[in-house]
Design a protein around this nucleic acid. Structure first.
Length: 350
DNA sequence: AAATCGGGGGT
DNA sequence: ACCCCAGATTT
C-alpha cells in the first residue's frame, strides 16, 4: 500500500482528540500552531484554552494590551512568539478586517509565521497541498528512508521538504500533514519508538539496518553559558517594591523583574555594593541589604544557566515607579521571578 | 551557517 | 546530564 494511505489510516485510528482539531478556523489553528512551536502539546494546552477563553476572536486579542498578552503567555517561554502573535493579531484585525490570508505564501508574511507554520495553517485550514516539516517529520522520514543528512543543516531542510512534498497526499494535505506529525509524536518517538506495532515496520530502512537510535542526525549543540544575576528586592514601609521591564534584544524581552545587577562571576555583598550598576540603582545613601538565598537558584534554560541570588533591601520610602505589592501579580514575569514570589510569599505581605 | 530565544518532560 | 518538543528570527 502507498505511504500516504497507510499513514492516514493510522492517523484516523490513533489521533488524539485535541481542541484545535475540531475546527478549521484560521484564528484558532494559527494560535495553536504558534503556541506549539518547540512546545509539547501537554504544555501548550492550558495556554491555548485560556487564550481562547480570554480572546475568543482575533479582534479581542488585537485589542488587548501587550502586558495582558505576555501575562497570559507567562511560563510558556520564547516570548517573542507572544509579541509577534499580538502584532499579527493587530495587523489582521485592522488591515485585513479580521480575515487571515488564505494561502501559504501570504501566511508566511505574517510575523512569527515561518515555513512550518504557514504550511500547517494553509493545509489544515485551506487544504493547500504544501508539506509541513517539523521535528516529527524529520524523525519519521530520516528513519523510514535511512537519511543521514543532518536535519539542522541548510541542505537537510531542503532535502526533507522535497521528500515530504513528494509523499504528500495532494487530495488530503490536512490529514496527511497532521498524520505525519502525530505519527512522529506517538509512534515514531525519539526514544523507544513502537516499532513492533508500527504499520511501516516492514518498509522502514532504519529498522531494517538497526539504525533507529542514530536517526535523525543532528549537528552539535551550542555551549551553555553561565550568568550570575543579583536581584535587588526592595520593600518599602508602605508595601511597595521596584520592578523594571526588560528591554532590548536579550532573554525575557518585555517581561518584568526586580532591579538586576549582573556580574561576570558570583559575588558577595562587599563586591556587589561596589558594582556601578548597584550604585546606579540604590543611589548614594547607604542601605542595608540582606541575602535571601545564600545558595544561588540555578535556573536552567536550553542555552544558558542562570545563577540567581535575591537581596532584600528594606527602605523607608520608594519614589517614582514603585509597584504596590498587591499589584505585583499583574505583571508578566519570568518563571525565575514567579518562583521567587511564590516561595517567599513576597506578594502576600499586605 | 550559526546563534539566540524558555521551559518542561523523558530517559 | 543530555535530548527533544507542531520553529522563527537575527547575526
Amino acid at each position: 500500500m502507498i505511504f500516504s494511505k497507510i499513514l492516514i489510516n493510522w492517523y484516523l485510528k490513533n489521533k488524539r482528540d485535541l481542541p484545535w482539531r475540531n475546527t478549521t478556523e484560521p484564528y484558532k489553528v494559527w494560535l495553536s500552531e504558534i503556541m506549539l512551536q518547540q512546545t509539547r502539546v501537554a504544555q501548550g494546552m492550558p495556554y491555548y484554552l485560556s487564550f481562547l477563553n480570554e480572546f475568543p476572536s482575533v479582534f479581542d486579542l488585537a485589542e488587548a494590551s501587550q502586558e495582558k498578552v505576555l501575562k497570559l503567555w507567562q511560563g510558556l517561554g520564547y516570548y517573542s512568539r507572544a509579541r509577534n502573535l499580538h502584532e499579527t493579531a493587530k495587523y489582521v484585525a485592522s488591515e485585513l478586517n479580521g480575515k487571515f490570508p488564505e494561502n501559504y505564501t501570504e501566511l508566511k508574511k505574517l510575523k512569527g509565521v515561518g515555513d512550518y507554520t504557514a504550511a500547517a495553517i494553509a493545509s489544515i485550514c485551506f487544504n493547500e497541498a504544501v508539506p509541513v516539516v517539523d521535528g516529527n517529520v524529520y524523525r519519521v522520514l530520516s528513519r523510514y528512508f535511512n537519511i543521514e543528512t543532518p536535519i539542522n543543516s541548510g541542505s537537510g531542510n531542503k532535502e526533507f521538504k522535497a521528500l515530504a512534498a513528494e509523499l504528500l497526499d495532494k487530495e488530503n494535505p490536512s490529514l496527511f500533514n497532521q498524520g505525519l506529525m502525530e505519527f512522529g509524536a506517538l509512534q515514531c518517538k525519539p526514544k523507544n519508538p513502537l516499532c513492533e506495532t508500527c504499520p511501516f515496520n516492514e518498509a522502514c530502512l532504519a529498522l531494517k539496518y538497526d539504525k533507529i537510535q542514530g536517526l535523525p542526525v543532528k549537528l552539535k549543540k551550542t555551549k551553555v553559558k553561565k550568568r550570575y544575576f543579583n536581584y535587588l528586592v526592595f520593600a518599602s514601609e508602605d508595601n511597595k517594591t521596584l520592578l523594571q521591564q526588560r528591554i532590548g534584544k536579550g532573554i525575557w524581552e518585555g517581561l518584568y523583574e526586580f532591579p538586576l545587577v549582573e556580574t561576570p562571576a558570583p559575588v558577595e555583598e562587599h563586591s556587589l555594593i561596589s558594582e556601578e550598576k548597584f550604585k546606579e540603582i540604590v543611589g548614594n545613601k547607604p542601605v542595608e541589604i540582606n541575602i535571601y538565598n545564600e545558595a544561588p537558584i540555578v535556573h536552567k534554560l536550553s542555552h544558558q544557566h542562570i545563577y540567581a541570588r535575591f537581596w532584600l533591601v528594606q527602605i523607608k520610602e520608594l519614589k517614582g515607579k514603585a509597584v504596590s505589592l498587591k499589584n505585583i501579580r499583574k505583571y508578566p514575569v519570568p518563571v525565575l521571578i514567579q518562583n521567587f514570589l511564590e516561595e517567599s510569599d513576597f506578594d502576600d505581605y499586605c
